[in-house]
Every structure is written in structure tokens, then in C-alpha cells.
Amino acid sequence: MGRLGAAISTAIAIGIGLLTLIGLLAGDNVPLVNDIADFLLQLVVITTAITVLIGVVNLFSVHARRVGRRDTGWGYSLLVIVATLLVIVLVLLERAGALGGRPSTILFETVQISIESALAGLVLFALVYGAYRLTRRRLTWPTVLFVVVLLLLLLGALPLAGLGPLVSIRDWLMAVPVSAGARGILLGIALGTVVTGVRVLVGQDRSYRE
């Protein structure tokens, strides 16, 4: 399984990649190749779903081991296991018709979303503190420009009367320089993707064999 395996891996990556590429580019003009590309994409989606499940099983087993060995913080691990099982058991009971209503949906909408929102709200303090720390460091022209743009956009978002000029500046910033910078970054990423993709398809990049 040494060099032969590596050669097979390369052949699979290049062959499947080219087949999918041709299928996606050809579209409905070549139905057979397009159908094959669609099927390959479905296989990838299902395989990815299986890897997600493997990840959950791994998380579960790691925490179960911590509980079993009574490691430091094993109580937290027990909480993870109980919460995971709670959702799965609730859904199973719902599907079996043993529970009225949709308790799993209620649990999601009230508890899960509440915790998610609270965590997202906490980010506010980290961001503001980060901006404050930035101004405390040695000032360079990019730092000053960053802070000025940040303040302009934040002040421009205030729902106050008399901020007309500020709102105009904010709108212009968003429409021209921000849009241009974002396009440049996205084009750079796309060019990098194309270069890397071509390298994989011509067999120059074979990091998947390691």
C-alpha cells in the first residue's frame, strides 16, 4: 500500500476531479457527464454527513471517558452527555408519538438559541476592548485609518437627527472603498483557489497522500 496506494490516490483525485469539473461545466449539454457529476456531489455530501456523525461520536466518547476516569471537570463532561442524550431521546419519543407537542423544537428555540444569542452578545465586549487596545499601541497610519473608518461607520449608524453628512460619508465609504477592498480580497482568494485547484488537477499538489 506504499507507492501503489499513493498512485491510486492521485489517480482518484485527478480522475474524479476532472470528471466533476467537466460535468459541472458541460451542464445540460452533456447529460450523462452532468448526471455523474451530480452523483459524485451527492456522495461527497453524504460522506461529509458521516464524518460529522463520526465527530459527534468522538466528542461523546471523549467525554464518556472523562466521566469514567473521574478526570478534572468530569461533571461538565457529564452535562455534555446528558444534554446530547436529552435531545436525541426527545426527538425519538416525538417521532414515536409518545410526546405531545414538539418539546425538542421548544428546547431549541428557548434554550439553544438563548445561549447562542448570549454568546454572540458577549462578543460585543471583546470587539470593543480589542478596538480600545488597538489605540493604546504604537500609532501607525493603518491603525489611524482603521480607527477613523470604524468611528465614522459607528457614528453614521446612530439614529440621530443632524448626522446627514456623516451618513453620506458612511454610504460613500461602503459603496466605493469598502466595496473595492472587499472585491480585491475576494478576487485574491478566487485567484488563489484557481491556482491551487489547477495544481491539484494536474498532480502538482498531492498533499492528500500524506
Partner: peptide
């Protein structure tokens, strides 16, 4: 390799 091939395309 299979995932990389399809993902690259």
C-alpha cells in the same frame, strides 16, 4: 483523495 477531487472541481 475522492473528497479532494470533487471539492477541487
Amino acid at each position: 483523495a475522492f473528497l479532494v477531487g470533487v471539492g477541487t472541481a
